[in-house]
Simulated scan of single mutants.
Amino acid sequence: MLTVHHLGISQSERIVWLCEELGIDYEFKRYQRRSDNALAPDDYKALHPAGTAPIITDGDVTLPESGAIIDYITAKYGDGGLVPSPSSPNFADYLFWYHYSNASFMAVLLAKMMIGEGSADRGALLDDRIERGFAMLEDQLGKSDYLAGNELTAADIMMGFELTTVRAFMPFDLESRPNIRAYIDRIQARPAYQRAMAKAEPEMAG
């Protein structure tokens, strides 16, 4: 049985959303962060040596990392859903946004959160990269409803976390980004997203 181990307020909400979009059977287990340091509890960290969220188990398989998990679930249970075929005209866009989300955009957001009021030079560099990311998103979402065309793909499931939950901890001004704001509204209006958030982050679901 596929089990999604969800750590509260973490990237693992992506996997809950993925499973809801695909309409697959899965078991859901939610873990509360520690009250003393807001880190994952010991039983969550014990699931895999990486000790990070998300993590799934599926029979003898224990797998961390958002991208690896999404690839695993879409390949094994997705029946072709949410992943364009290599012959699709939007395949290259899909690959770019799918990988850019965590490899580049999430990385600079996390770095910015961690340095806080640290080095001005490093802060300026990160601000520039974040701004370029938002500019690319705004441009792309002016061309299509979702990142790889007018249908939701796994690239949107990867990126959605940065534009929704991350903003609770790192607010950013989207007043000049109407395409991104409309995109967030489209994501949050999806029934599968609403079901996922009701399970994963009920305090934020409303």
Rank of each mutant, 00 (worst) to 15 (best):
Met1Ile: 12
Met1Trp: 09
Met1His: 10
His6Cys: 07
His6Tyr: 07
Leu7Ala: 07
Ser10Glu: 01
Ser10Phe: 02
Ser12Gly: 09
Glu13Tyr: 12
Arg14Phe: 05
Ile15Val: 13
Val16Asp: 09
Leu18His: 03
Glu20Ser: 02
Glu21His: 12
Tyr26Gly: 04
Glu27Phe: 10
Phe28Leu: 03
Lys29Ser: 08
Gln32Asp: 15
Arg33Ser: 03
Arg33Val: 01
Arg34Ser: 09
Arg34His: 00
Ser35Gly: 10
Ala38Trp: 06
Asp42Tyr: 08
Asp43Val: 02
Asp43Pro: 04
Asp43Tyr: 01
Ala46Asn: 07
Gly51Val: 06
Gly51Ala: 04
Ala53Gln: 05
Pro54Asp: 00
Ile55Asn: 05
Asp58Cys: 03
Gly59Thr: 06
Thr62Gly: 02
Thr62Asp: 00
Leu63Gly: 06
Ser66Met: 03
Ala68Leu: 13
Ala68Tyr: 13
Ala68Lys: 05
Ile70Thr: 08
Asp71Arg: 09
Thr74Phe: 01
Thr74Gly: 10
Lys76Ile: 13
Gly78Arg: 05
Gly78Asn: 07
Gly78Ile: 06
Gly80Phe: 02
Gly81Leu: 14
Leu82Gln: 00
Leu82Pro: 00
Val83Tyr: 04
Ser85Cys: 00
Ser88Val: 11
Phe91Ser: 00
Phe91Lys: 03
Ala92Met: 14
Ala92Leu: 14
Ala92Phe: 14
Leu95Glu: 08
Phe96His: 15
Phe96Met: 14
Trp97Tyr: 12
Tyr98Trp: 04
His99Cys: 11
Tyr100Ala: 10
Asn102Leu: 13
Asn102Pro: 12
Ala103Leu: 04
Phe105Met: 11
Ala107Pro: 01
Ala107Ile: 14
Leu109Tyr: 03
Leu109Met: 14
Leu110Gln: 14
Ile115Gln: 13
Glu117Val: 14
Gly118Ala: 11
Asp121Asn: 11
Asp121Lys: 08
Leu125Trp: 11
Asp127His: 07
Asp127Leu: 06
Asp128Tyr: 10
Arg129Val: 12
Asp139Phe: 12
Asp139Val: 02
Gln140Leu: 08
Gly142Tyr: 04
Lys143Ser: 12
Asp145Lys: 13
Gly149His: 05
Asn150Val: 09
Glu151Ala: 14
Leu152Gln: 06
Leu152Ile: 08
Ala155Thr: 05
Ile157Lys: 04
Ile157Pro: 11
Met158Val: 01
Thr164Pro: 07
Thr165Asn: 08
Thr165Glu: 11
Arg167Thr: 14
Arg167Tyr: 10
Met170Cys: 15
Met170Phe: 15
Phe172Pro: 00
Asp173His: 02
Ser176Met: 08
Pro178Arg: 11
Ala182Glu: 08
Ile184His: 05
Gln188Val: 12
Gln188Gly: 12
Ala189Pro: 04
Pro191Tyr: 13
Ala192Glu: 05
Ala192Cys: 02
Tyr193Leu: 12
Gln194His: 11
Ala196Lys: 04
Ala196Tyr: 02
Met197Ser: 03
Pro202Lys: 14
Glu203Gly: 11
Met204Asn: 04
Met204His: 09
Ala205Gly: 05
Gly206Trp: 08
